[in-house]
Structures are given as C-alpha cells and as structure tokens.
Write a protein that binds this DNA or RNA. Structure first.
Length: 378
DNA sequence: GAGTCAATAT
DNA sequence: AATATTGACT
C-alpha cells in the first residue's frame, strides 16, 4: 500500500517534470524557429525531444495504470540521457545560446565532458548574436552536419577556432567579413558584394579569370609605412621625376626593400598623389603660382625657389600624415598627369608658361607610352 | 602585366 | 579620418 502510494507520487513527479521540460522545449523551439532555415537540425532535435517527453508522459500514465513503475523509471532515465542535452534550459537563453551549447558539447565530447558551464558560454554567445546567417546548410540529419551547422551559420570556414574564440571581445565581425568576401572558395553561390557590383558581364568575368584572383584567402595584413620607408619612397620619387612620373615598378626597383610589393607601392603612390592634389587645392598658390620656374637638380625637377629646401620639406613640416611631408613641395613641381591630356601645342604652352626647363632625366622616359610621349615632346 | 581609380577594409 | 588592400577597368 505504502509502496503504491510512493509510486503514485513518483509518477506525478515524473509527469510534472515532463510537462515542465516540454514547456521549456516548446519555448526553445519557438526561438529556434526564427532560424529554421539556418538551424534545421537544432529545430529537429528540439522537436524530437518534445515528442520524446510527450511519449514519456503517456507511457508513464499507462504504466501507472498497470503499476509497472520500474520500467517507467528505466524509460525516464533513458529518455533523460538524451534530453539532458536540452536541460536545464534557462528561460532567458536564446536559440543562439542553444547553438553554443550544442557546439561546445561537440567540442568537448572528445574529452568526455558534459555540458556544465553554460554561464561561461554565455560570453561567447554575445558575439554570435551579431553573426549574420548567409549559409543554408543542407538538411541532412547527421551528427557531423549538426556540428557543421553551427559553424556554417557563423560563416567562419576560413577562420581557425582560436580566432572564433577571440571573437569574444566583439571582434568577430572583423574576421567574418573577409570570410564572407572570399567565400567563393567554397560557396560560389554566394557572391561577394565587391564582385556583384558593377554589372559585370561575361567579359568582365573572363578578364577577372585572366587576371587571377587576388582576393583569395584572407585580406593581407596592412603594411605600415614608417618614416624611413616613406623616405625611401620619396627618394625614389625624386629620382623618377615625381609622383606623377614614377611608376610602382620603378619605385620598387629603386627602393630595394625586401617584401615590398608593387601593389603596396602602387597603393602608397596613389595616396601620395591624392595628398599631393589635395594639398595643391588647399594651397592654390602652388598650382597657380605665377612664376613656378623649374630647374633640374641632379636628375630631378625642382622649383627654382624651393629646390634648396626640398629636403627640409621631406622631414614632415607641412600637412598631416606621412603623405604630407613631401606633397606640398612637390605639388606643383611635377607636371601633373592632367597635363598629359592636352594637345601637343597646349602642352608646349604649359611648359613654357610654367617655365619648365628641359629635363634630361632618363627616368622620365618611362615605359608608359603617355609619359614617353610627354618626354619626347619636351 | 602595369597603371589608375574607386570601393572597401582596417 | 587616415591608410592599406583589393577590384574593375584601361
């Protein structure tokens, strides 16, 4: 009699707990449902768990009727071994937290550890929340896929796990974007924003293929241009006839710096020119100067008045940033590229107006046909 | 392949 | 905002 009563109490407890679990799981399912495309497997698992609990309740009821408590307890234990994955479920947890739990569980499985430290993992969930969901993994049910689902969602194929964890500080999005941009490696169906812009046709694609993809892999780390390096760059510019005549290739040859690529020089030169123009706009005197006479100093061009102080300018006295150092002094020294577009007579008149003295620099006869033409004209 | 400009990332 | 990288184009 007493035993029966205790069994009855046991059944009720089991039913109550099952009901609680079902309630929590259903709430979880609602949360995951928002990401049903990205997390089909998670959704499936939660659904299965709910069904298992419902089955458990019905079985418990049946067994209660037949007074087979031992079997029921066994079933419950068996059931819980699976459902413990979802329990305890904090009501505050989001579906993303749930992902983390599954993910972490998977990672820790090798060391035979179970899920015990949700609080610690909540930290990680913060950055995952900001992750966009671009991929739609196939809905094939397998443990491996479930594992990959969590990673696919975050689109971190190219990032090591270490980097993902680093994302705790909120820098995850930084890793993510390059990954997205170069995702054509494995996800050709996902176009990067850069490649989709510009309305490229087949020709563009072919050209791109011919040129080869530079964008493969992660974005290069930024190279800094310390004063010394920039000084070399400026010196090379001087020798080559200024920023508008120098070419990245020639600059590279003159700089003789290991590891410095033409692309990097190209970029630096671009910014240098940009600053040159900007400073010349800021100081119209530079460009509209009435008597900007040029002389050949060494094998370079220099303004008659300024050539003696050119070195001082390189030390960085003028505009901000590393580009400012030489820009102001060179802004009007070198024939601007826009001059190249003039007709021959115009160019001649420009030269005469500006008092340009013939330059014998061999550097000015660059491989660029336009510049060669200009040099010939002179 | 090199050079240039613009867009984008850092 | 400044600077570096990459893409698109010539």
């Amino acid at each position: 009699m007493i035993k029966n009563l205790s069994n009855m109490k046991n059944y009720n407890e089991i039913r109550e707990r099952c009901c609680e679990y079902i309630e929590a799981l259903e709430e979880e399912r609602r949360n995951i449902n928002v990401f049903h495309r990205e997390l089909p497997l998670c959704l499936e698992l939660v659904t299965q768990a709910i069904q298992a609990y419902k089955k458990e309740i019905s079985e418990t009821t049946t067994k209660n009727l037949y007074k087979k408590s031992e079997c029921s307890e066994e079933t419950t234990r068996e059931c819980r071994s699976v459902l413990d994955l979802f329990i305890p479920i904090k009501h505050s947890l989001t579906s993303v937290d749930e992902e983390d739990k599954v993910n972490d569980d998977d990672d820790e499985h090798k060391s035979h550890e179970t899920l015990t430290c949700f609080d610690d993992k909540n930290m990680k969930s913060e950055w995952l929340k900001s992750v966009q969901l671009w991929n739609q993994p196939g809905a094939v049910l397998s443990n491996n896929l479930l594992k990959s689902e969590v990673y696919n969602v975050s689109c971190f194929e190219d990032c090591s796990q270490e980097e993902i964890i680093k994302g705790n500080d909120g820098s995850a999005s930084r890793h993510q974007l390059p990954c997205y941009e170069t995702s054509n490696r494995e996800n050709d169906n996902i176009k990067s924003p850069a490649t989709t812009s510009g309305g490229g046709g087949h020709k563009k694609e072919a050209d791109k293929a011919a040129r080869g993809h530079r964008g493969k892999g992660r974005r290069k780390q930024k190279r800094s241009w310390p004063q010394e390096l920039h000084q070399r760059f400026v010196n090379a510019l001087k020798q080559l006839g200024g920023p508008n005549n120098a070419t990245p290739k020639h600059i590279k040859e003159l700089m003789k710096v290991d590891g410095l690529t033409s692309d990097q020089i190209k970029s630096h030169l671009q910014k240098y020119r940009l600053h040159t123009r900007r400073s010349s706009q800021t100081n119209p005197n530079n460009i509209n100067s009435e008597t900007p006479h040029f002389v050949v100093v060494g094998e370079i061009w220099a303004p008659q008045a300024n050539h003696s102080t050119a070195n001082a300018a390189t030390l960085g006295e003028t505009t901000t940033g590393i580009y400012g150092s030489m820009a102001s002094s060179l802004a009007f020294v070198w024939p601007n590229r826009s001059n190249f577009g003039h007709t021959i007579s115009e160019e001649r008149s420009i030269c005469s107006e500006k008092g340009i003295i013939r330059c014998n620099s061999s550097a000015i006869s660059s491989s660029n046909p336009t510049k060669t033409k200009y040099a010939n004209i002179l």
